[in-house]
Design a protein around this nucleic acid. Sequence first.
DNA 1: CACAGCTCTCGACAAAAGTCAAATTGGGCA
DNA 2: TGCCCAATTTGACTTTTGTCGAGAGCTGTG
Lengths: 321, 321
Amino acid sequence: MAIRPAEQLIHKAAWLYYAHGLRQDQVASQLNISRASVAMYLRKARETGIVNISTSTQLFTDDVLARKLEDALGLDAVWIAPENAHIADPSTEIAVLAASVFLELVKKGDRIGVAWGRTVYMIADIMSYADLQDVTVVQLCGNLGAPYSYRPDQCTMEIARRLNAKGLNFYAPLVLSTEELARALRAEPVIREQLSGVRDCDLALYSVGAVDADSHLVKCGALTPDEMAGLRSRGAAGVIAGQIIDAEGKVLDCSYNRRVISAELASLRAIARRLMVVQEDSKFEPLLAAIAGGLCTHLVVGARMAQRLLDHAAATTEKAS
Amino acid sequence: MAIRPAEQLIHKAAWLYYAHGLRQDQVASQLNISRASVAMYLRKARETGIVNISTSTQLFTDDVLARKLEDALGLDAVWIAPENAHIADPSTEIAVLAASVFLELVKKGDRIGVAWGRTVYMIADIMSYADLQDVTVVQLCGNLGAPYSYRPDQCTMEIARRLNAKGLNFYAPLVLSTEELARALRAEPVIREQLSGVRDCDLALYSVGAVDADSHLVKCGALTPDEMAGLRSRGAAGVIAGQIIDAEGKVLDCSYNRRVISAELASLRAIARRLMVVQEDSKFEPLLAAIAGGLCTHLVVGARMAQRLLDHAAATTEKAS
DNA sequence: CACAGCTCTCGACAAAAGTCAAATTGGGCA
DNA sequence: TGCCCAATTTGACTTTTGTCGAGAGCTGTG
């Protein structure tokens, strides 16, 4: 009776406690175990997603600002994390919100495309566990060999783990040293398949990167600070899934981009729900570029960023009229 | 600060507690209210569906028996409620399970068709609250004037209330005294619209009724016990949404059926997900009829009933071969 | 066959959550 | 204006839940 008490008992305990509303001691006597064990099973049940506790993110969309932004930018939904003085860490708040929103957007059977970066990894890390069936998490771009813990494959795998889903990793470097090699690699069946599979995703999760010396692309050695500065002066406005985009959200015509192995922007746009999360206030221009490029339908940002976006949209409209 | 503390505060408290994982006293000090208030808000949040606690019903489909039944009967999914000696009330267990399954099947934006009966009402009564947006609950058949608390409109409204959804009621009697009147009423735009709207449902919830003197149709005076017995001898095998079906699951050709205002079986079959819940062991034949008629894709039953269904299916197959 | 090594289990204590009657507040109404 | 009603809030109390270290049971190994 003592071997592998696991699954079955956890399920039963969770069922009696959460669905029937029994108390822990009642569950304990039903199952002939101690109450302490019941408490432990329940914790496991929550940790593995057998029970699911989710809170509505309604509050954050109800915001008048959020509504205005949806209209102004033509987005499907916007969530705005408050940034009051007494909120410890706004960027955590944004990540927590993003995790909830993400879980709200995922459905059974979905195929989810995930990019990488500090933001995405932070969301993955905060996200509660769920027991989605038949969900596949696919990596949107090649890997970086960096020692960071938020490498593309890490992000994908961690999210897959949290959702109890299948993770589809991408076994290619993000950037190659020559364009020829990149072209050849892209043509490889394994890679080609993965890249074309991106179109079939139902949901995408990513952030946008800044074009500066702090960028991960620089930190990981994919680009030197000088190269980055050069690209910037040639119109680079942001980074999406490892690719550099201009202010209009189009792929910048440059050698770097031609050496990158990543999902094409057109494929990304083919995904019905594209959730973009931006934590840093400094990513205003990159975000504008991403929005201009139609790379997001659902947006999670902080209050300050939201206000800036709205002001910008208003100014643009005014100028146009 | 005290006007309409409601919604806003409930949301915030729920958010801090469930999403951020703060303790109640921490939430209290954040919001400058007493911990007791926080506890109260959290209860309200759970009651209104602002937070959602759901337990996976995996356990009940994992059952080998359930798998076999799915295959044998060609259903999409089967859930089997255990009926061990130490389970207080098997029919409550079935209803609790059905409520969870139902909530698992509902999606945002769905249109849900609901029939009536003791089982359906019991499910509605047990079901926890949720905050689905844009959900519409439609009544599948006309009303009975009976003093029962599980009248068709009650079932519909209660479920709508629990889901925070819109309830679409049916303002017509279930049975009329003459066929002409029923025909005329069915032709009325309001009614016709409601009936044709059934096809657009994404999910249906119903049980099946028995053809005997205990049937609600008899208890409500729609049919006399003698009439019922007569129908039975003419092949009546069950009752679906107020209509009498034969062993093959087709509408029985009889005056009663022609006097009924209800969704056509073809419309019901047009609904993608049809959840049927049967509590009573006595409803074996009616259930067989409903399954034969293709009226259910998802099934929730007790263990004994499941076994009988499987035995029956095995016997039938054997005879055929 | 004894012994680590492992996980699971339990009892007891500490912490957190639920509850209730009393007090307070705001708003409508004479 | 002042009073009353209903709803909300609170402090104090009880109940329920979480946690920790000790112990028990099983497994594989020397």
